[in-house]
């Protein structure tokens, strides 16, 4: 289900704003932790930083119900197919945050075992730098994602670049 089939007019315009608001305020992350960054990701969800403020404490174990995959940590060659599978199991609309340098670029481990950047496997919307990024950094990445959802920029970018695993948006999000 989605807004994709509707033509653009006043009602759908407002509806779209509402839906974007809802999507922004209810980004449920998948429980997908890989390495050190996963610890910091969990720390972000814990009492001192509290992702719940954004309605994000609902870490969904089932990818079917998750909206956001935070790739937290280094992605090995062995794990890459699994990551892709989890991504494919997620339902549209879905977003990916690449957390930490290992996920973003392979980081300091440029060797046989690691995938040099998860964007080779899944399309990434936000890159969060750091090794590991502190909770504040991750939170900044998440707020940036919220902003991009609100303005609809992510959809536009996917439309122009084709990234986003077959998500087609016709009519909406201009």
């Amino acid at each position: 289900m989605g807004l994709e089939d509707l033509s653009h007019n006043f009602i759908t315009g407002n509806l779209e704003t509402l839906v974007k608001w809802a999507r922004r305020n209810s980004v449920w992350p998948a429980t997908f932790g890989l390495a050190c960054c996963a610890i910091e990701m969990m720390a972000t969800g814990a009492a001192n930083y509290d992702l719940a403020r954004f309605g994000m404490e609902v870490f969904r174990a089932s990818p079917r119900q998750a909206d956001l995959m935070i790739v937290a940590g280094r992605l090995s060659q062995k794990m890459a197919p699994v990551l892709r599978q989890v991504y494919d199991q997620m339902m549209e609309p879905k977003w990916v945050i690449s957390m930490g340098v290992c996920a973003s670029s392979g980081g300091m481990f440029n060797n046989y075992a690691l995938v040099q950047g998860v964007d080779q496997v899944v399309p990434v919307d936000i890159y969060v730098p750091g090794c590991p990024p502190g909770p504040q950094t991750l939170m900044h990445g998440i707020i940036t994602l919220h902003e991009l959802i609100r303005t609809g920029e992510i959809m536009q970018r996917r439309q122009s670049s084709g990234a986003g695993a077959g998500l087609t948006l016709e009519g909406a999000g201009r």
Binding site: S76, M108, F109, N111, Y112, A113
Partner: peptide
């Protein structure tokens, strides 16, 4: 296991002792 194999022991051979603890 092995889903997080990072090749650190191999990497360590490429890093100087002074850089080693980073790894």
């Amino acid at each position: 296991i092995g889903y997080l194999h990072t090749g650190m022991e191999k990497n360590q051979e490429e890093l100087m002792y002074i850089q080693g603890s980073t790894n």
